[in-house]
């Protein structure tokens, strides 16, 4: 099943590489040619942002998944007040562009909170906050898709609310929303590039800095594109592997 998929991906990449190499006059691949010492240094410099991009995205999504769940649950409560809180949070947070949120957290928040905040945590807070609204909606839909009979069976074996959620509802809901959660992680990896505007040394920022000194935007940004592409293909493969694992867990 997976094979033709992989072959197609390989073909597309090869074709892209050949097209790029074909119109060679404008290209100056020497800037990132690992065979030359300066090219190798540049390449290492570019790839050096990978760790920050991954760390930032993973930290942010870990927080936003937990926060999203915490915001989804009141949205399913019988109380109108709790549901209202959920609605307001989701609508407001979803309406703010991520870039604006990043600027607001990094430059604005220190003024009210009277603490300075480093770029990493500013990025994490902004991305996590923005994503938590989407995660909340994903969790709400996932939990609502679970059959009412599951709650009734849990009731009949005397489980309390917390155990019902933790051992019965969420394990099933999470299996269902796994593809959506995977999408959010991909989205997060891409949006982390915006944190470059406040100076975080992640992939995009590194590329920008190198472009300024080398003046080879075409080659450097092409490498940047490939970096994100590889990263995200790996993540997608990981998510699909997890989906298969969990399905095997249920004996199907």
């Amino acid at each position: 099943m997976n094979r033709p998929h992989r072959r197609i991906t390989a073909c597309v990449l090869a074709a892209a590489a050949m097209t790029l190499a074909g119109c060679s006059q404008q290209w100056g691949w020497y800037v990132v040619n690992p065979a030359t010492p300066s090219g190798l240094t540049n390449l290492k410099f570019l790839i050096g942002g990978l760790q920050q991009t991954v760390l930032l995205s993973l930290t942010a999504i870990s927080i936003s998944v937990v926060a999203g769940l915490a915001i989804a649950l009141p949205g399913l409560a019988p109380s109108r007040l709790l549901r209202g809180f959920n609605r307001v949070f989701v609508e407001v947070v979803r309406a703010v562009p991520i870039l604006v949120l990043i600027l607001w957290v990094y430059y604005g928040m220190p003024q009210i909170m009277n603490v300075s905040i480093n770029v990493f945590w500013a990025g994490v807070i902004a991305l996590a906050l923005s994503d938590s609204a989407f995660e909340a909606e994903i969790f709400r839909a996932g939990i609502q898709s679970i059959d009412k009979g599951q709650y009734e069976a849990a009731h009949s074996v005397s489980l309390n609310y917390r155990d019902t959620m933790w051992f019965v509802i969420l394990p099933q809901a999470i299996r269902r929303i796994l593809p959506a959660l995977g999408n959010q992680l991909v989205y997060m990896l891409k949006m982390s590039s915006l944190v470059s505007v406040i100076g975080m040394q992640e992939l995009t920022r590194k590329a920008n800095e190198l472009v300024v000194t080398e003046y080879r935007p075409l080659e450097i940004y092409t490498v940047l594109v490939l970096e994100y592409l590889v990263l995200i293909l790996l993540v997608s493969a990981g998510v699909r592997w997890l989906e298969r694992r969990l399905q095997a867990d249920q004996g199907s």
Binding site: G149, E152, A153, H155, Q172, Q250
Partner: peptide, 16 residues
Amino acid sequence: RSKIGMVFQQFNLFPH
């Protein structure tokens, strides 16, 4: 509910 066991038409087993 701790004194009562209930069996449903649709079984309602926990599939996971």
